[in-house]
Design a protein around this nucleic acid. Structure first.
Lengths: 138, 138
DNA sequence: CATCAGGTTGACGTTTACGTCCACGGGTGT
DNA sequence: ACACCCGTGGACGTAAACGTCAACCTGATG
């Protein structure tokens, strides 16, 4: 909808991405030093393209999930790997499976936690009085 | 099943818990200094009861999910609050809701990630050849 | 031309979550 | 009495992930 729709553009300044994702430019530069991003350069100035923007999105999601940058780096390489030419597809499969295992156990943890909290919430809710038709009508 | 079934006992030494959960005694002491655990004392020696063991389980789960100790501390207080006597049940509800929101968005992130990885896995799997009856029979 | 916004590297500071090392005390087996 | 083993608290070290200057280089603009 937006004239500047980020998904359609192909070139981004470091500040563009920082603003778009609410992080600091320092952080972005840091990710680069860690090899998670590899923006092009024009002179010394970084120029980001869709590919790096996509990677950034994955990085941030990984962070929300509590993974370290090192973890995320490995994880990104799964996306990178040229599945069709890899000599070690088997190795790729193993890595993906390993990560899937981790994620699935996290999923279980999360579901348990959500269930527990929901119960607490229900109890508290009861205490304050369940919503009545009258309440809803107010 | 085990004679020493941990869930049935009521008293634990710091080393018991450390061993059971595969963490260091140093870590447990650290959690105490941060107020996450409040073991009884016999002289200067810590004595843990079921309550603190339960809290420890929650702490570790929180960590697996990528929360900070500070986050976890707040989270534990949700369990602590005496729902039936709280003067501010409403506040409790708000806090629980807030946390539930966080967890649910994590859940979404996780599901997305798992789906993406599954796809990658499927592609790689194809490349190496789908499992045949012969393969399975080998 | 002066200035100013935005970019760069480098060095150092900071917080979190422990690990490591230490000197010390208390109970136990021999 | 002596050697162990376990536990304790204090001090210091450390890795990760940035934040915070500082000093510098642009390119655009009034």
């Amino acid at each position: 909808m937006n004239k500047h729709d980020a998904d359609k553009r192909d070139l981004f300044a470091i500040a563009d991405l920082a603003k778009e994702f609410g992080i600091s430019t320092r952080a972005i530069r840091f990710y680069e030093t860690k090899g998670l991003l590899k923006p092009d350069r024009v002179g010394s100035t970084r120029v980001f393209r869709r590919r790096d923007r996509a990677r950034l999105i994955l990085i941030l999601r990984g962070k929300r999930l509590g993974f370290s940058l090192r973890d995320i780096s490995e994880y990104l390489s799964l996306y990178d790997t040229d599945n069709s030419r890899t000599a070690q597809v088997q190795l790729l499969i193993e890595k993906v499976d390993e990560r899937l295992g981790l994620l699935r156990s996290q999923l279980t943890d999360l579901e348990t936690t959500i269930a527990e909290l929901s119960e607490i919430r229900a109890l508290a809710d009861e205490r304050i009085g369940p919503a009545t038709d009258i309440d809803k009508a107010s």
